[in-house]
C-alpha cells in the first residue's frame, strides 16, 4: 500500500482498504491505476462493482512482455457515479497462460476474453464462448504475440508486384527522401 492514497477519493479508499497488497497510483484527474496479484483481481472487480458503482467494464487489454515471459492483463472499469476509470493491472505467466473469466461479474468480458484468447492464446476458464471469431481462416500462431513476425510471414506468403518506374529510380539515385 502506497502513500498516494490522499488523492484517491474516500469511497474508493474504503474499498481498497479491504484488499491487501494492492498498489494504487492516481494517474491524472479521472484515472487510477491499480496493481495487484492475479488471484485477487476478481475480488477487486466484485468489490468495485458492488460498493463503488464501477458497473461498466470498458475493456480488457492484454500486453505481451516477452522478456519476463508474462502477459499483462488490464481491466478498465468505469463508474457512472464517481466518474472515474480504474485500470487494474495484473501479470500472469505465459505458460500455461490461463486465467479465470470475469464474465459472471461483467458480461462484456465475454467479447474481450474471446478476443484475447484468439489473439494471444490466453485461456479464460469459465468464459462462455472461446470459439474462433475473427480469425476463422487463420491457421498460424496467435498473431498478436511478439514472437509472431508479420513482416516475415507476409514476405513468404505473398508476392510483390514489380513496380520501378523511372521517377522512382531518379529519387532513389538522389538518395531518396523528402523534398522541402
Amino acid at each position: 500500500m502506497t502513500s498516494q492514497r490522499a488523492s484517491v477519493p474516500a469511497q474508493l479508499d474504503h474499498i481498497l482498504h479491504e484488499m491487501s497488497e494492492v498498489r494504487v497510483t492516481p494517474k491524472g484527474e479521472r484515472r487510477v491505476r491499480v496493481d495487484l496479484a492475479a488471484d485477487r483481481l476478481p475480488t477487486l472487480l466484485q468489490l468495485l462493482k458492488g460498493h463503488g458503482g464501477f458497473l461498466h467494464l470498458s475493456s480488457i487489454s492484454c500486453v505481451d512482455w516477452p522478456e519476463t515471459d508474462e502477459f499483462e492483463l488490464v481491466y478498465h472499469v468505469w463508474s457512472y457515479e464517481s466518474k472515474m476509470l480504474i485500470s487494474a493491472h495484473t501479470l500472469i505467466a505465459k505458460s500455461p497462460g490461463r486465467f479465470v473469466s470475469v464474465y459472471d461479474i461483467h458480461a462484456p468480458a465475454g467479447f474481450y476474453e474471446r478476443d484475447i484468447h484468439e489473439m494471444y492464446g490466453v485461456h479464460f476458464e469459465g468464459s462462455p464462448n472461446l470459439n474462433k471469431f475473427i480469425l476463422t481462416s487463420w491457421h498460424g500462431p496467435p498473431p498478436m504475440l511478439k514472437s509472431f513476425d508479420t513482416r516475415a510471414y507476409v514476405d513468404e506468403t505473398y508476392a510483390w508486384r514489380d513496380y520501378n518506374p523511372q521517377w522512382l529510380k531518379d529519387i532513389a539515385a538522389k538518395g531518396g527522401g523528402i523534398e522541402e
Binding site: P143, T150, R151
Partner: peptide, 16 residues
C-alpha cells in the same frame, strides 16, 4: 454473429 471479414490486424501492424 460472425466477424473477421474486415480484419487487417491493425493492432499488430501499428506495433510495427
Amino acid at each position: 454473429t460472425d466477424a473477421g471479414y474486415l480484419h487487417r490486424g491493425f493492432e499488430k501492424i501499428m506495433e510495427e
